Simulated assay, not measured.
Amino acid sequence: MISDVYAWELTETNRDWLIHRPIEIAVYTVLAVVLRFVLHRMIDRMSNRRRSTDTAVNERRSQRTRTIGSVLKSTVSIAVLTWCVLQILGILGINVAPFIASAGVVGLAIGFGAQNLVRDFLSGIFMLLEDQYGVGDVVDLGDAVGTVETVGLRVTTVRDANGTLWYCRNGEILRVGNMSQGYANAVLDLPVAHNANVHKACEVATRAVLDAAASAEIRADVIDTPEMLGVNSVTAESITIRITAQVKPGRQWAVQRAFARSVLSAFEKHGIEAPYLPSPHRSTISPTADISR
């Protein structure tokens, strides 16, 4: 009789561990995956929401929303994973109350032992709140210059012009130069020879730049009429004249290339000489390097 009861209890125990608890663990796991998927979809829908008017302010707000959305998705993933792990531990009979009660002590210990991590986290929060940069912005973070691909609470990734992906800890970012907020200036420096007619060169360059600004290629990118600033510098090798134009953020390099192409053709047509440079280099126009993708 005693052996029968023992066999029955053993069977129930086995049934609990081999059937009931695995099913509960599977249910919580599936629920966590579904919950994470649904919350990510909701965040994506909010982040990709379009407004009826396509203004610079709305574009910036949309960009900032996508940036915050990426951080929210990471936070949701961590929260759902933590909840799922705690539920599974409870199913396995492990008392999770001590873990929760000691969370404050562990957090304090981590705060003292991982000060850099805390600094990265706090810096990331303030960067998001202050909208210093967002995904898609072209930024100068010091050693890394390029397009922001992801913004997290600890790390920001930047893709430079050579395709290198830089991982920058938020706590180590001391300054941010954002080239994608509000507007940008396309600056074109045109070196000409000392024996060239500078007045004529300015007139030819101005007409060429105005024609390029009115072309279908960059017309939508130019915000204000290009301005001829005149002679910017005089060196032993050349005289440099400068033209600037206010353009949409992130489009200054494309506009500079279009301006340079148009001015180069106009200079060749009107016989305006370029400065002589020692062989093998000989150049007429050197627009600012393109650091965008």
Rank of each mutant, 00 (worst) to 15 (best):
D131P: 09
N48T: 08
I91Q: 05
T157Q: 11
G163C: 06
C84P: 00
S47D: 00
G152Q: 15
S62M: 05
R45L: 14
V139T: 12
I125M: 07
T164P: 00
L165W: 03
D137H: 14
A114K: 14
D120M: 11
L92I: 02
G124H: 07
Q115R: 15
I88D: 08
N116E: 11
V155N: 04
A56N: 01
G146C: 08
L129N: 05
D131S: 13
R119K: 15
L128F: 03
S102R: 04
R169D: 00
D143K: 15
L86Q: 03
G124F: 04
T82N: 02
S102D: 00
S47F: 01
G152H: 15
S52M: 07
T147F: 10
A97V: 09
V155G: 02
T156F: 09
L122M: 04
R60M: 06
G142D: 13
T65I: 09
L141C: 11
N95G: 02
G93H: 07
L153E: 10
D160A: 03
Y133P: 08
D143W: 15
I91S: 07
A144T: 06
I88K: 01
V151A: 14
W166C: 06
M46S: 03
T150A: 14
D120G: 07
A56S: 08
L86R: 01
V80M: 12
V118A: 11
T147N: 09
N162S: 04
V76Y: 15
T150I: 05
T67E: 08
T55C: 05
S74Y: 10
A161D: 03
G113A: 13
V96W: 07
G142A: 14
